[in-house]
Design a protein around this nucleic acid. Structure first.
Lengths: 228, 228
DNA sequence: TTCATACTTCGATCGTAACCGAAGCATCGC
DNA sequence: GCGATGCTTCGGTTACGATCGAAGTATGAA
């Protein structure tokens, strides 16, 4: 009867709409203050405070006080993966808060998923990397090929240093808007960082969407063609 | 604000202890009646009935009426994966309903995880398959090698027919008791089935544990040696 | 020191959902 | 037909937790 991990606790933590909204907002990867999170949760600061305390003691959030602000982030990448996988699941069941129409077109085109690129552009990038033979889709997983390592070095990404990290290089992550996989893992992070560094795109202050500049858009589409 | 899938709904569904227990029980893969599920949930039949109705309308359960019984199963494999991934997550955080000690040794040794083998034996099997070169662990995923295909045929598993299925052949699944990966996917299912068919092991009526016969135990350990 | 901002804690209200007893259907065996 | 079993629906109670106003604490700015 009472065997195994307690799913109900974390289910209940995520099960409150206000808390779920906060967690989803933090999936954007950047640290947010209690006041900001109260905003996305649609609740007052007092209520948010108790919610945040619960989430923290439940191990889902980490906080870092800085001056009189209190910045919250997801506790680690495992939490981010859990939230994303629940999003993918919910999207597949049609549990949408919104009509799935093109209500937030920028968000569907390109957004940040914890630390890597998601949305139409994220899916396109992975498709293109697979089509060009830079990444092998083998079974359920992804693996970088030698050709891919060379190609990436050419656009300024040093795969060697990424390999030394404990975190997997390539990981596939289900995209809730496209319902297809995009590239996560340390390589996914490095690629997004490089786009931002190059000035091709920038993060927005309020939302999780990634805005490409006209020039960045052109470069991105050239670098990751479909039907390659 | 209101963008994306609704995590809170499914979180709330899983967040109730009675419902969580039922879902965890159904992770055992076999269909259970409403009365049985009431038992694992620790509630009366009436209460269970309303819970089950909610889970079904939430898309987590499927039911099949047979005579005057009503059999419930998880709606599909995606639900099973979600539950398992939440279990893995909860175990990693120390959210245990039980002390993590060897309280249920049989369960930790070998149990069913939806339709494949988990626990110490499940992890051992995958380790051994990788060590012998039957399965390649590449990046985040698993892939069957040619050698593996031959080895499996020799113990009576026709990989060809499995390949034709839409379901992935190999998938890695995080084991919550061992905190390491075991083999899921259609191959994981086929392997467990073959053990049961051969009479090496049998499922228990009440729990998710898999009981190996003395002879089956011997054969299994011989077939999947460690330090091979 | 004083005021303002950021946040937490307290206290009280309120709504919802979990729960079970009892009654109502449906199906099976006879 | 009859009773028994498996399950659902109804009604009413209860308990928990989400919520916010108000007051309290901490940090920074003037």
């Amino acid at each position: 009867m009472k065997e195994g991990p307690d799913i109900a606790q974390i289910g209940a933590l995520i099960g409150d709409p206000a808390r779920a909204n906060m967690l989803a907002a933090l999936t954007g990867g950047r640290a947010l203050t209690a006041t900001e999170l109260a905003g996305v949760g649609g609740i007052t600061l007092q209520t948010a405070s108790t919610h945040l305390a619960k989430l923290e003691s439940g191990g889902l959030l980490a906080q870092r006080k800085q001056g009189r602000h209190r910045y919250f982030t997801l506790a680690d990448e495992a939490v981010a993966r859990l939230i994303e996988s629940m999003m993918g699941f919910a999207a597949g069941r049609g549990h949408l808060r919104h009509r799935p129409g093109p209500k937030e077109p920028a968000l569907r085109k390109a957004r940040i998923c914890y630390d890597h690129l998601a949305g139409d552009y994220g899916v396109r990038m992975l498709d293109s990397l697979i089509a060009s033979g830079s990444i092998d889709a083998v079974g359920d997983g992804l693996a970088l090929t030698e050709k891919g390592e060379g190609d990436l070095k050419r656009i300024g990404i040093d795969v060697g240093s990424l390999k030394s990290s404990r975190r997997p290089l390539c990981r596939s992550c289900l995209d809730w808007s496209e319902r297809r996989a995009h590239l996560a893992g340390s390589l996914g992070k490095a690629l997004l960082s490089s786009f931002l560094d190059k000035g091709w795109a920038r993060r927005t202050a309020e939302s999780r969407s990634i805005l490409f500049s006209p020039e960045g858009d052109r470069q991105f589409l050239k670098l990751f063609p479909v039907d390659a």
